[in-house]
Simulated assay, not measured.
Amino acid sequence: MASKLQAALHESPVLLALFDRHDRLRYANAAFCQAYDVAPDETLSWSELMRRNYQRCIGALIYTHDFEAWLVSARSRRGKQPYRAFEADLTDGRWIWMTEAMQPDGSMVCVATDMSELKVSERELRQARDMAQRAAQTDPLTSISNRSCIMQLFEQLLGRAEATGMPLAVAIIDLDHFKQINDRLGHPAGDRVIIDFVQRIQPMLRPHDGFGRLGGEEFLLLLPGYSSSEAELSLRAMLAAVEASRPLAEQPGFGYTCSAGLALWRPGDDLAQVYARADIALYQAKATGRNTLCRH
């Protein structure tokens, strides 16, 4: 019976795929492989798959002139909810309804069905609604979650931690001496530094981590399931990656750093309490010389 079910799933016209906790493809049925141009033995990450689809103009139809910005935005939504459903286009003309279901081990099951027969007027209305919702959740400069969206995710993860006891690490990250960067190099250069910061950090995150811009040069990072030592190790790697970056081609010697304040959720904590401890820790990091991490 199990082998018959497995054969039926593999030959089903419904697109089926499993991505592991690192967002790497571990299983795809024939329909998914055909739609996204995946060989049966390939284990691409989701980001690698989307980049290849974009470069080859096959598989996912990605409407953008800036793929990296699109990828940052897409990753800021992927894996953040236990279940998500959305519409997507394929380059072969099909229109699919994609669902993403997170599993307890951090993996993700993706299931997609063909919706190409839906009326064009209904499709356009749904797309307009989705675009408006996405814009309301996205920071326009960096394409990651805006303050409202990341704080909403913060509330959800706190509720999950309270219900399950799952650890939750929270970090506020601030770019060091950012006003001086703006004053010395100008606001366009400052914007490029902020974009570079996001591009350094996001590839180091897991699919279910939360990352959003609170405003200006301040960002919020949510790391569910991480112990204190795991969170500190991850954050120190991020600080090192930022310090090594040289984001301005016309200023090859220019670099920048950031500071981070870390707090762990404790049973009974509300959002304000966790946030306040992370903020105090950030202040301590700034006071001890910047380009460092403190925990409170």
Rank of each mutant, 00 (worst) to 15 (best):
Q137E: 09
W70K: 06
A171P: 00
Q133P: 02
A169W: 09
F178Y: 05
E217Y: 08
A39N: 04
D105S: 05
V120A: 09
G190L: 01
Q251H: 14
I173P: 05
A69T: 14
A241E: 12
A249K: 14
A69L: 11
H208P: 00
E11V: 06
L282D: 07
V120M: 01
G59M: 09
G159D: 15
A171R: 04
G253L: 14
R147F: 02
M108T: 08
R24P: 07
L90K: 06
I62P: 11
N53G: 15
E124S: 09
N146G: 07
S121V: 15
Q180T: 11
V14E: 03
C294R: 15
N53A: 12
G210R: 05
G93A: 13
L223T: 01
R206C: 01
S245T: 07
L221T: 12
V198T: 13
A17N: 00
E162F: 11
P40D: 04
W265Q: 08
S107V: 00
R77M: 15
D89I: 01
G215D: 03
A244D: 08
A8T: 06
R77V: 08
A171W: 02
R75S: 09
L222D: 10
W95Y: 15
Q202P: 01
K119Y: 10
M131Q: 15
Y83N: 09
V38P: 08
A30W: 09
R77Q: 09
Q202G: 07
L18D: 03
A272W: 11
A2T: 12
L214N: 01
Y256N: 06
E68T: 13
N146L: 03
E100P: 01
E232R: 15
A88P: 10
K179I: 04
D209V: 01
L185V: 04
N53M: 12
L185Q: 08
Y256P: 07
W46G: 12
I58V: 15
Y226W: 14
A260Y: 05
E218R: 03
F154R: 04
H187G: 02
I96W: 03
T138W: 11
S229G: 00
G165R: 06
S227A: 13
L264P: 03
R123N: 04
L71W: 09
T91M: 15
K179H: 07
L16R: 01
H296T: 00
H187L: 02
Y283K: 10
F67W: 00
S12E: 03
R184I: 06
E100C: 08
G159S: 10
L49A: 15
T91G: 04
P207L: 11
R123S: 02
Q199W: 05
D66H: 11
W70A: 12
L153F: 10
T64W: 01
A88M: 14
A60P: 13
Y226L: 14
L9N: 01
A163Q: 12
H22F: 06
S121A: 14
G159L: 08
T91A: 12
L61Y: 12
V198D: 00
F219K: 06
A85Y: 09
D139V: 06
L222C: 06
H187V: 05
V111A: 10
H22T: 15
P167E: 04
I280D: 09
V109Q: 00
R21Y: 05
V242T: 08
L44D: 04
L223A: 05
G79I: 04
E117A: 14
Q156L: 12
T138N: 11
S229E: 11
E42C: 03
A30V: 15
E230I: 11
G253I: 14
G190H: 05
A128R: 07
A135C: 11
W70T: 03
A163L: 13
R134C: 06
